[in-house]
Write a protein that binds this DNA or RNA. Sequence first.
DNA 1: TAGATTGTTAATCGATTAACAATC
DNA 2: TAGATTGTTAATCGATTAACAATC
Lengths: 209, 209
Amino acid sequence: MTTHSGVPEVVVDRLPQYLRALAQLESSGIDVISSQQLGELLQVTPAQIRKDLSYFGRFGKQGRGYSISHLLERLRNILGLDQTWNVAVVGVGRLGRSIISYPGFEPEGFRVVCAFDSAPVVVGQVAGGLTVYNFADYAEIAEREHVQIAIVAVPANVAQAVIDDLVAAGVKSILNYAPKSALTPPDVRIRNVDPVVSLQSMTYYLSAV
Amino acid sequence: MTTHSGVPEVVVDRLPQYLRALAQLESSGIDVISSQQLGELLQVTPAQIRKDLSYFGRFGKQGRGYSISHLLERLRNILGLDQTWNVAVVGVGRLGRSIISYPGFEPEGFRVVCAFDSAPVVVGQVAGGLTVYNFADYAEIAEREHVQIAIVAVPANVAQAVIDDLVAAGVKSILNYAPKSALTPPDVRIRNVDPVVSLQSMTYYLSAV
DNA sequence: TAGATTGTTAATCGATTAACAATC
DNA sequence: TAGATTGTTAATCGATTAACAATC
């Protein structure tokens, strides 16, 4: 549909923040907000908000601001959040099980529809209501289940191999919980979720004094 | 000790990546690496690696590259990772329990030493070997236990209030798992760990086609 | 010494912000 | 209409990269 070539990634990454703040404002009964007010709430400049939104269209009214419900609808549409996304979890250890059972995905339109592991003792088990499949069968099952996003929760030492397999199976979006930043081709999106890395840069500032 | 004013935050945030890659190289028996080689591994330019490191000193040898063990030691020292950090987990629900039991913190020098909740049914319980304290007593107990970092795992609707209390108690580093970006004073470091936000920007690229 | 690679400066690139005409 | 705020351009700021003298 739209070509996304023109929009900086840093702008796309801010849209979910706007979305979340607007959703909260809507639920507290507010109808309209200016870039000034939203900027105060999110601690960014009003100019940045207006510029970011201008990559996608003209959603405001001069002299008035933005209709929250209208802007929410447009942002959801832009981000592709007006549909449900099917997610596969790869790696059903302690962390994988937490992810499968995490209640925060479903309300936002991300549905964990299948789980994979390579260990024979784990394959066939039931975790969070899902039967665990053999990762060797990933491509076939993921296609059948219309999986669009893979969440990787395997040990660091096999992360790259697993991610290579996922890429080979055609996966274009990966959320990586493994403590290892993996290499992927440019058309594959990978985001790392790693609490230790976040802590490791904060300690820099703690050590300062 | 050092004043950190001159170093861009984006540089500090890359150091843990270098650290991780170097640690892996060391464990595979490699002694020396050039910025060129490390850049290929991490998919960044060699110039960026050299420039980043130059903010902190001169760690390489012309014509040769960087001694991995020496660079590791220096990076650990710069980031404050040559000591153990005591961590408190606030919010002992499903997610908080996962965090307390997560085995990835301890080997990296982050020790979860206490846990807090506000619900009377949870206070006094044992979770992952830790007795859950009343969050009302945070300041006193955190001081006694020498806590330097707080991990927040409470529902979105109380996240800001909890974080305000932590800031009032003198916490300077917060890892926030709540699905809500909270406001903090400039001297308080907060990092958000939110898988849903990561997914919500990836779907933008999936929707493209 | 010859070859390689650093550390650093200067050039480039891209993102943020300020300013303001357009307009609700 | 008068006041407010957008959308957008131009200016500023900061980060990345290229280039190369210094030197191991």
